[in-house]
Structure formats: structure tokens, C-alpha cells
Design a protein around this nucleic acid. Structure first.
Length: 130
DNA sequence: CTTATGACGCGCA
DNA sequence: TTGCGCGCCATAA
């Protein structure tokens, strides 16, 4: 176990959430709930809180995190949601009339088993494939 | 110190 | 199918 792993395992909840979001590939998406389940002892709600508080300086692909319905979550205010949809469309992701994307095409499976194991995350399959 | 606020999702009636 | 309760991080005022 190296120093980086130790620091990640000891990191705060939000830092552990950000570490996962950082790994979502371009053109793919993950749900709040899936990320929460991998982090462990974490709720989808908290992942939502973390995304709302994402430091601009981290330059995370925050737009690749959507809700269980396959839709971009509506913000209480501002144009953050429409911006998020544009960013995803720019990565080749299409939305249907109801505003949903296809998890079969764009759902992220998560980091490989070894990465999850070494960094202290739960290794479970995504909930949006069957 | 307390209170408000903000990207969710599950179970149950 | 729709609606409701609830969990409980981090930060600003």
C-alpha cells in the first residue's frame, strides 16, 4: 500500500467521492447512487451535496454524474442543468424526448476491481444494467 | 454556537 | 402509479 492509497483511504467523504468522479471516462456517466455505493457508508444524497460543492479548481468531470432516472438532475436555481446536458451532448450522448439517456450505451462500470480494492472502496456492479 | 441550503434514491402506503 | 419520510456532508451567515 503506497502513500497515495493511504491518503485516499483516510480522505474525507467528499474527497473520496471526487476521486471516483475523476475516473469517469468521456462519453460515459455514473449515477449518484452508484458512486455512493462504491464509496460505502454514503448516500446518493451526499454525492449530490458533494457535486454541488465541487471546487472549480479540481476541474472534475462533474457533468458525468446523473440521477437514477437517466436524467440530468434539475437545479433549484441557475442554468447548471442545461449546461450539464450540453457538455454531455458534446461528448456524443443523446437524450430522448423525456430527457433520458441510454445507460446501456453510456453507463460507466466503475474502476477496475483492483483499483477499488487498493483504495478501500466497495466493489459492486452498476445498478443500471439490468 | 445555531440554522438554512443544496446535483438523490429507497421503501412503503 | 404518485406521494411522503428520511438519511445526514460541508459551508456560509
Amino acid at each position: 500500500m503506497n502513500a497515495q492509497n493511504e491518503s485516499l483511504m483516510a480522505a474525507s467523504l467528499y474527497e473520496r467521492i471526487y476521486a471516483l468522479v475523476e475516473l469517469i471516462p468521456k462519453g460515459e456517466v455514473a449515477t449518484y447512487g452508484f458512486l455512493a455505493s462504491m464509496v460505502g457508508e454514503c448516500s446518493a444524497r451526499q454525492v449530490g451535496y458533494a457535486m454541488a460543492a465541487t471546487p472549480e479548481a479540481l476541474a472534475l468531470p462533474w457533468h458525468r454524474v446523473i440521477n437514477r432516472q437517466g436524467k440530468v438532475s434539475v437545479r433549484a436555481a441557475g442554468e447548471g442543468d442545461s449546461k450539464q446536458r450540453r457538455l454531455l451532448e458534446d461528448e456524443g450522448i443523446a437524450f430522448d424526448k423525456s430527457g433520458k439517456l441510454d445507460f446501456a450505451k453510456h453507463g460507466w462500470y466503475g474502476p477496475d476491481w483492483e483499483w477499488l480494492q487498493e483504495n478501500g472502496y466497495q466493489h459492486i456492479p452498476p445498478p443500471y444494467f439490468g
